[in-house]
């Protein structure tokens, strides 16, 4: 860091700016998320760009994985979890460039894993419509990850805002927001999802709405608890006696200090959201065919797999989903372990 004042260089700006590690992490996360979201959500809109938009995300994933492993090397559990999650992230961003078959092209149905039919080797078999299982499994993680991360992030923004307001401002704000959250929390989650999706219709965006409505109350509770604890600290008094606006205090003084527990919760919640999205798709309420999606694959295989020979059609996407969720849970556990150690 520079100590001499250089009026023309950017370093003097940086000297009072937030830490570079935090910004680097945020930059890498954006570099992964934005291309992936663009690819999955706005595929048709971006046209030819589709083929190139994911390229910067691949080194970003690898770099972030390296940073995560180094930072969490004291916790084996966190590293295992991170490996699982980043494996699927890598697959998600590099799926278009892998040497695998077209996931939507029917070739030869009911091929067992390892079988060769029509001159094509099906490493994991083919499903009842003849599409390659390996390719569908690998492509299937894209939508789950993108919609899961988007939904959880938006739920966090909403939940954290309400939590900060309820915890810091207190009074009527707290009463009303807590009441709304208690009402929403008293619904069984699946019932809430089904109600909302039936009402709004089935699409990825509506899943985001449904996840937000069901997750935000829990997040709001956590953030409210953290805020209530931090509200009486001296640095908040110092900000108040400066005459800072409550919004500024909430965003700049309180929120950054809540990140520890929130990150652990985020990992867990990504797991829950993945389960939710997969279940919804399985129930026919979520993302629509024909694009590969694990929930859809499980649904389609449900009847065929009753025959023992064809259970692979069910087991393979199930293992894929489970491994991703396990990854999130292990990461959450490991991070909690690490935060207790300090």
């Amino acid at each position: 860091m520079t100590t001499a004042l250089d009026p023309t260089s950017a370093s003097s700006v940086r000297s009072l700016a937030p830490s570079s590690t935090g910004s680097r992490i945020i930059l890498l996360l954006l570099l992964i998320y934005v291309p992936l979201a663009a690819y999955v959500m706005f595929g048709p809109q971006i046209g030819a760009l589709k083929h190139y938009v994911l390229i910067p995300a691949i080194p970003a994933v690898l770099l972030l994985y390296g940073m995560a492993v180094r930072a969490w090397r004291d916790s084996t559990i966190a590293v295992i979890g991170a490996t699982l999650v980043f494996f699927w992230l890598l697959i998600a961003v590099s799926a278009p460039y892998l040497p695998i078959l077209d996931p939507n092209k029917p070739i030869a149905p009911y091929a067992l894993p390892g079988a060769v039919k029509n001159g094509v080797t099906f490493l994991l078999g083919s499903d009842l419509r003849g599409r390659d299982m390996l390719s569908r499994t690998l492509w299937g993680c894209q939508r789950v990850l993108v919609w899961g991360i988007t939904a959880t992030s938006i739920a966090y923004v909403v939940g954290a805002t309400f939590g900060l307001v309820a915890g810091y401002l207190g009074g009527w704000w707290d009463e009303i927001l807590s009441f709304i959250c208690n009402v929403l929390l008293s619904f069984p989650v699946m019932v809430l999802f089904i109600l909302i999706l039936n009402y709004l219709g089935q699409s990825g965006f509506n899943i985001v709405v449904a996840v937000t409505i069901s997750s935000a109350p829990a997040i709001m509770r956590i953030v409210r608890g953290l805020t209530l604890d931090m509200r009486t600290r001296d640095y908040i008094f110092a900000a108040q006696t400066r005459g800072e606006h409550p919004l500024w205090i909430m965003m700049v003084e309180l929120l950054p200090n809540a990140r520890g527990p929130l990150i652990v919760d985020a990992c867990l919640r990504l797991g829950y959201t993945t389960v939710a999205i997969t279940t919804l798709t399985f129930l026919g309420l979520g993302l629509q065919p024909p694009d590969p999606d694990w929930g859809l694959m499980i649904k389609e295989a449900a009847t065929a797999a009753l025959v023992w020979k064809f259970t692979y059609m069910l087991v393979i996407p199930s293992i894929a989903v489970s491994s991703l969720i396990l990854g999130f849970n292990l990461m959450a556990d490991g991070l909690r372990e690490l935060s207790l150690k300090d």
Partner: peptide, 23 residues
């Protein structure tokens, strides 16, 4: 507001742990 300022008791809580001293 400028003319009335306070030094607090607990040095461990007097600064926001997430921001640098300079900021």
């Amino acid at each position: 507001v400028v003319n009335l300022q306070m030094v607090f008791q607990n040095p461990f809580d007097t600064l926001n742990p997430s921001h640098t001293v300079g900021s």
